[in-house]
Design a protein around this nucleic acid. Structure first.
Ligand SMILES: [Zn+2]
Ligand SMILES: [Zn+2]
Ligand SMILES: [Zn+2]
Ligand SMILES: [Zn+2]
Lengths: 142, 142
DNA sequence: CTTGACCCTGAAGTGGACTCCAGGGTTTAG
DNA sequence: CTAAACCCTGGAGTCCACTTCAGGGTCAAG
């Protein structure tokens, strides 16, 4: 019962790490294989042992994923935080991702507008023959 | 040399169909297995034979794909054009697709705005330590 | 007749990001 | 001491829409 332990290593096994990060336990092992997580030290019984830094790393991955980064990009971003790299590469990756997102958004908006237009012409009842949606797919027409 | 042949069957093999539809030849066979194309009749030598209706069907699939429909949805849409179905199902499929597109667009726009915001704070030079993009990933911050 | 272009089959591979499985060993509560 | 909960491994399976492969048969031109 020491009143203040300046830095207790506070270790935990894979299950707790997974639960804290709200991912499947196999996802953690998968990330290790993919090089996103460092190889964890093991307990006497062979269990992986993690610490606060690993939990933060999992959060990093989680946030990067919500921004749509691929695991490959995330691995590189994590790498860049390790060594004494320059910010330029980080910004380049982010800008590439923004550009990709914008392109994809334009594609989806194009799909949406075309399809909504056709759907707007469809009464929703009667025989399929003559349905404007089907007509549009059968021959290039608006 | 008949001056007017009211309906020449005009048959062709899989390679021409694929080229006309601008898809890989194996894609045609794949679509057949998936039930998107009807089983083609065969020549004496065992070659699949196609006609104008098949070419139109390939165009239908191509257009539906540019609207982002899954092959499963496309199969159903093609099915609906065959029998004496009602338009309601067609419209429902289209509206579902529009809704899915809108949801996906919102997700991507959220990613884009968050990421562009962080990137806007990044000078693009200097050490990674302290980079606003990395900081945002390390801890939930704007 | 031979060459080359074309076609056939069933099966396996691709990519991305997991997820699950079988057949174990380990740790902890009671 | 035992049962439950947890962990280990290598490998396979999942989804989707194809693509590739190996090992052959067919067809038109020269
Ligand atoms: Zn309609
Ligand atoms: Zn219109
Ligand atoms: Zn930066
Ligand atoms: Zn800000």
């Amino acid at each position: 019962m020491p009143p203040s332990a300046v830095s207790q290593p506070e270790q935990f096994t894979i299950g707790r790490l997974a639960k804290a990060a709200e991912v499947n336990i196999d996802t953690v092992r998968f990330y290790e294989r993919q090089g996103l997580l460092q190889i964890a030290p093991r307990s006497a019984g062979g269990y992986r042992l993690y610490g606060a830094a690993d939990a933060q790393r999992m959060q990093f991955i989680r946030r990067a994923k919500t921004l749509g980064f691929s695991l490959e990009d995330i691995a590189e971003l994590l790498q860049l935080t390790e060594d004494g790299h320059d910010r330029s590469r980080v910004k380049a990756i982010a800008q590439k991702r923004v550009a990709d997102l914008e392109e994809r958004i334009r594609e989806l908006e194009k799909m949406r507008s075309v399809l909504a237009h056709h759907a707007g012409h469809c009464s929703g009842h009667g025989a399929v023959k003559g349905c404007p949606i089907i007509q549009a797919l059968l021959s290039e027409q608006g």
